[in-house]
Design a protein around this nucleic acid. Structure first.
Lengths: 295, 295
DNA sequence: CACACTTACGATATTCGTAAGGATT
DNA sequence: AATCCTTACGAATATCGTAAGTGTG
């Protein structure tokens, strides 16, 4: 099977169009003899004359005419494929699939996504707002490019990098005693009824790990942060949630108070597959996320 | 727009399949470093890394995966186009359009076509069995590859070569006086009623030119040779026709007799366009026709 | 240390442009 | 003589294979 290059195709088509070696050579930025040799080489490798030529006229031979259709089609497809690849490399096209904890998806990610989308309007986005484990599963099965999740144990085959430490805040009604408490401590929280996220949430797990010795009055567990908001606002109890989720609690009736315990944090990691680099688009979003978090 | 060769596509696909530079290099009959350089060059010209590789594993990058689909499609199309061209060059495919006088089409061409078709079963044939002028028009308008016709005047832009001189024969019933005439001459034919082809036929024109001084008793003109056969067989008259048409007159009731006038001939020419070579298939048929005529 | 990809490097092959050649108008 | 394609040829470039280098399990 003979070798053939796009340059040869271009030269062939140029000559078919111009019907002149001199003009076609100029169009290909080649000296005329070099162009002539190129066509000759092509004819040899295809095993047939493609042009009937003498000093007075140049035109496609029967076989050349037959090949012309294919050549135009092939070169067109080639250009399409190459420019499509170029679009992806230049970030004019693409798709990034991010898996992220729901606690990040509602409050923190939207601004990042908006900025990303503004910078790279051609790149589409997928966001799987799931708990840590399904997030990581998506990464492992290569369905998501990377995940923003909380994972203590380092996973085999996955690259896990700390994105940030998310400090916990007290959330309660303005008329709650703790809202005006001068010196907040964990111990002062314990007596009050707590509204918690369910045990499989990263928020809850980080909290449990940090509060290990203390026993809280957990009278209600829910699955969604928004539900916590509603419950706290209704005066059913208090809650302790990470800073990145405070978006949910920006309400007139509520206050959020920093807790003076430095290592009471939930750690957020960027998780991606060890093997295989990120796509250009995914790397762009990844880098933006890291930049906006660190910066 | 970057250059790209089928060799590079093959290498890319081989590496995508084998996921090993060593194996893919072997598959491409290249040393491993040369293969490595080939992939590197390709990545540079496309402006993106196509494979994620370290000493332990080789796999497509996101951009490589994107390009893989196109690459396989492109290489497939390439092979198709090249092998299709090859089929035509090797005469496994093709089509030849011949224009030929009806007087040749029925009797003389069938054996040639049969032999040609047996030798090159993949090549389809078109035969336009028309009078000289429409035959030549087909050649000039590039609808026919060449024509077998009678043309005195050399036509501008056309290449005209003598194929054969077709001697005329007397055709009459066995019971006709001329059938047993010892020494045939033209003059002895004159008194008898003639059945002629119409004046726009090449047979008639050649005959008229050759018989110029003599006046024949032309009481019937027809358009088809087969009609001449029927008329002569019915005893309506005699006719004089070229040797290559005698096929029509091989019948029990008829005799065909050579006329002892050497230059009483109709000349058959091969007519083709001056510019532009014949297709491989057309040349094959052309050469066979010339060979069978001369040989 | 064994395996697999990369780098280094001299040798070979290809491709280039300039200049001369040949054919046609 | 002018035009256009081909041939000739030395120079620049690209590609090849061998051998050494590097990094990982």
């Amino acid at each position: 099977m003979p070798d053939l290059s796009t340059r040869q195709l271009r030269a062939f088509i140029a000559l078919a169009d111009q019907r002149s070696f001199t003009k076609a050579a100029a169009a290909c930025h080649l000296s005329q003899p070099a162009f002539s040799a190129l066509i000759r080489t092509m004819e040899q490798s295809l095993g047939t004359r493609l042009f009937d030529r003498d000093t007075r006229s140049v035109q496609l031979s029967a076989e050349g005419r037959l090949f012309e259709t294919s050549a135009r089609q092939l070169l067109g497809d080639f250009c399409l494929a190459i420019s499509d690849l170029g679009d992806h490399v230049e970030r004019r096209k693409g798709r990034v699939h991010v898996a992220a904890l729901p606690s990040l998806a509602a409050g923190w990610l939207p601004a990042i996504f908006a900025e990303f989308r503004k910078t790279w309007p051609g790149i589409d986005l997928n966001l799987s707002d799931l708990l840590s484990d399904p997030c990581i599963d998506l990464v492992r099965s290569n369905k998501a490019d990377f995940a923003l999740a909380a994972t203590g144990t380092s996973q085999a085959g996955l690259d896990v990098q700390l994105l940030c430490s998310d400090r916990f805040f007290l959330v309660c009604r303005k008329d709650h005693p703790l809202a005006s408490e001068k010196a907040l401590t964990l111990k002062k929280l314990v007596p009050y009824p707590f509204i918690h996220m369910s045990r499989n949430s990263s928020v809850r797990q980080a909290l449990d790990a940090a509060l290990r010795p203390l026993q809280t009055n957990t009278f209600l567990e829910v699955d969604q942060l928004a539900t916590v908001t509603g419950m706290v606002e209704a005066g059913l109890g208090i809650s302790v949630v990470p800073a990145l989720t405070l978006f949910h609690f920006e309400r007139k009736a509520l206050v959020t108070r920093s807790l003076p315990i430095p290592n009471l944090t939930r750690k957020i990691y960027v998780v991606r597959r060890q093997e295989g680099s990120l796509s250009v688009a995914a790397k762009a979003l990844h880098d933006l996320i890291v930049l906006r978090m660190k910066g």
